[in-house]
């Protein structure tokens, strides 16, 4: 187990390092001079030279990379060009707001997804299961930005129940106003992923219910409740956790889109802003932060998988 933890941690460090090279390379090597990309096609050579000097673009790429990496390791994420401010506090603020959105959605996805999966598996073939399957199919097939538009259309434009876009802190608007702005984005983010998780949880649960040890548990005369929750769920959860880790990534992607639709000032919106404004230092920093968060999420999934899997926890055999 200790070896497993160390191995996974080393792998995360490796991925982050490699990703920093990749992000740096894409920003600096792809066709299109950085300074021109920032200033536009019709920039004067003088302006380009001035900007290149400011950004340190005259130095060799390897030096630039080492400089950038060293700064990052010291917690300095660079300077936003478009806002002319340090990137770190910008990202931190946006990250906090995104975390609220993501945290709420993810908690709902875990609870509703696994709950829905178990329900579907235990009611296999009945009308309720089939209805659920149809609704899930719709939520998976339809893109979340379209759900977002529909939600704004109904609840904001027509019914005027909820604000269409924006964000207000608890300090500004109280808990009610804060929640009102979160409700639609959280709902849209949750629905598609819940459908995904519960479908996979359902099939994983069904597969476990077919296994011989469930037959044996029933032959022992255990009540169905124990068979389901002690014997079956314990084995169906690890695959569901793998799915949840993948979905954490989809969620992070979804946040970019949903924050854009709802004009929610989070990290996703900031990244899209950085691209629109060609604010490359901010983009680099933001991407590194996202990579780190995703790597940590995967690490946590691996660890909880290992905790639920006795083969990894107890390796040695008994003679």
């Amino acid at each position: 187990m200790a070896g497993f933890v160390v191995r996974r941690l080393l792998a995360v460090v490796g991925v982050l390092l490699a990703m920093s090279v990749l992000i740096f390379a894409i920003v600096h090597i792809l066709p299109g001079n950085v300074a021109y990309a920032i200033l536009g096609e019709y920039a004067t050579p003088g302006a380009v030279a001035a900007l290149e000097a400011k950004l340190g673009l005259n130095e060799p790429l390897s030096v630039q990379y080492w400089h950038w990496l060293a700064q990052m390791l010291h917690g300095n994420l660079g300077q936003s060009l478009s806002m002319d401010r340090p990137a770190a506090p910008l990202i931190a603020g946006a990250l906090g707001r995104s975390a609220i959105l993501a945290g709420m959605s993810f908690a709902l996805v875990v609870v509703l997804g696994i709950g829905g999966g178990v329900y579907g598996a235990t009611h296999k073939g009945r009308v309720s299961d089939r209805t659920l399957a149809f609704v899930q199919f719709l939520f998976i097939a339809v893109p979340d930005f379209f759900w977002a538009i529909l939600a704004i259309l109904f609840f904001a434009a027509w019914l005027h129940w909820l604000p269409a876009t924006g964000y207000e802190s608890i300090a500004e608007a109280g808990v009610g106003g804060w929640l009102a702005h979160l409700l639609l984005p959280v709902a849209v983010l949750t629905l598609g992923l819940t459908a995904h998780v519960s479908r996979l949880a359902r099939s994983s649960m069904l597969e476990v219910l077919e296994s011989r040890y469930i037959l044996a548990a029933r032959a022992k005369g255990l009540p169905e409740r124990l068979v389901l929750y002690r014997h079956a769920l314990r084995n169906a959860l690890p695959p569901a956790i793998t799915v949840l880790a993948i979905d954490a990534g989809i969620l992070m992607g979804g946040i970019v889109v949903i924050e854009t639709v709802f004009a929610y000032p989070g990290l996703g919106r900031l990244l899209v802003y950085a691209i629109e404004q060609r604010d490359l230092p901010l983009l680099q920093a933001g991407m590194m932060v996202v990579t780190a968060i995703y790597a940590i999420a995967n690490l946590l999934a691996d660890f909880s998988y290992a905790l639920l899997n006795p083969r990894l926890r107890h390796g040695r055999s008994i003679r």
Binding site: S211, R212, Y213, L215, A216, A217, R218, A219, K220, G221, L222, R230, H231, R234, N235, L308, N309, P310, R311
Partner: peptide
């Protein structure tokens, strides 16, 4: 009577014991 008065031993113990429980 299942499990109370009738005990059962199936074949292939590796697939009969629940891998996730002690």
């Amino acid at each position: 009577p299942r499990g109370r008065r009738i005990g059962t031993v199936f074949q292939d113990p590796s697939s009969i014991l629940n891998p996730a429980l002690p």
